[in-house]
């Protein structure tokens, strides 16, 4: 890892001008604009409030699920527990409501559990560094297994839980949800608020700056009295909490609990982070970049759907896009220049 960190140093040395610093952002916007233009040209009905709403709705779920992945990537970690916590939250919430807990209380319980699982994940994986992703996988398995044992005890639910979802929760994230009478689901507003709030936190608080410091140079950060362990644990905990929130909001979207609802988020969150331009090695990027990555991914998917491509074909196209995207702004220098 040390040598890879040095790679980025050299790479960064080359990209000194302000344009280059924000190259990934500029390219992201350009790509997004191209995709929108292509959609408008090629797909009838692409430019419609219907389609915009559906794009933003799907983007909001992916965006919320990617918060934790972005924070983790900023310190060079990957959180593979995200899909399992999403799935766990998605079935635990209705099952708690069936057990008689009022919906708001149940939601707070799920949120706290998500944060605790995340914190445990961070605390346990800290010493592992490079292998931390496998630890997060183990924690995810354990958590989702435990939740399913709970939902199965005394009922036949298991991985699929049916329960009446309160209307207000349904309204939050259903396609035809209303935000104070306006024709779009509030989850989009929630996502926007999270994005703005997080962006502000990252730039204006000691926590945000420490996070970048640890990701950029752990030793230099330690010299400033920043506790890497604390940062590591806090971001994993945040990741767990955001995954739990995503899982609960997805319940409102689908109307029934299903443990596998999180599965697509295993690698799409990573893809959104990477396409946005956040380095998986830490220190560079941010949630703003991820928002862009999420939008590019979702608009691209919508365009491909509009062009009549099947789900597998969409996935293949997205996969093919990743390498050239990253190659534009994050090529490692040749080994000759690393000596």
């Amino acid at each position: 890892m040390v040598s890879t960190v040095m790679n980025t140093e050299v790479a960064m040395a080359r990209s000194a001008s302000p344009f280059r610093t924000h190259k990934s952002i500029a390219i992201g916007f350009a790509l997004l604009a191209c995709l929108l233009a292509l959609g408008a040209l090629l797909v009838p009905g692409f430019v419609s409030s219907q389609n915009a709403r559906s794009i933003l709705l799907l983007a909001a779920f992916l965006g919320l699920a990617s918060v934790g992945q972005t924070l983790c990537a900023l310190v060079g970690a990957l959180d593979l527990s995200i899909p399992y916590i999403i799935g766990g939250a998605n079935i635990l919430l209705p099952s708690l409501m069936v057990a008689g807990l009022p919906a708001p209380v149940a939601m707070i319980v799920v949120l706290i559990l998500g944060a605790l699982v995340g914190a445990a994940n961070g605390a346990l994986s800290f010493r592992l560094q490079g292998q931390a992703l496998i630890m997060s996988l183990g924690v995810g398995f354990a958590a989702v297994g435990a939740v399913q044992i709970y939902t199965s005890l005394g009922s036949q639910f298991g991985g699929t839980v049916f329960a009446p979802v309160p209307d207000w929760l349904r309204n939050l994230s259903a396609f035809n949800g209303k935000f104070f009478g306006l024709p779009f689901p509030p989850v989009i507003v929630i996502w926007a608020a999270v994005a703005i709030g997080l962006g502000w936190i990252m730039y204006n608080t000691w926590f945000g700056r420490s996070l970048y410091a640890v990701g950029g140079s752990r030793t230099a950060a330690a010299r400033l009295g920043i506790s890497e362990f604390r940062i590591w644990t806090v971001i994993h905990s945040a990741s767990g909490a955001m995954s739990a929130i995503t899982g609960m909001l997805l319940l409102g979207f689908s109307g029934g609990g299903f443990v596998g609802v999180g599965d697509p988020y295993l690698f799409t969150t990573v893809a959104a982070v990477v396409i946005g331009g956040t380095s998986l090695l830490g220190g560079a990027g941010g949630y703003g970049a991820t928002v862009l990555g999420v939008l590019v991914l979702t608009v691209l998917t919508s365009l491909l759907v509009g062009l009549g491509l099947s789900f597998p074909a969409q996935q293949a196209v997205v996969g093919l896009l990743i390498v050239p995207m990253v190659a534009i702004y994050a090529r490692s220098p040749h080994i000759r220049n690393q000596i």
Binding site: V270, A271, L280, F311, A327, R331, S332
Partner: peptide, 19 residues
């Protein structure tokens, strides 16, 4: 192309899963 291997293989994962 000199892109981090994990990104290349992530791409491989997605492409092949679709194909």
């Amino acid at each position: 192309v000199r892109v981090a291997p994990i990104i290349v293989t992530l791409s491989g994962f997605l492409v092949l899963s679709g194909v």
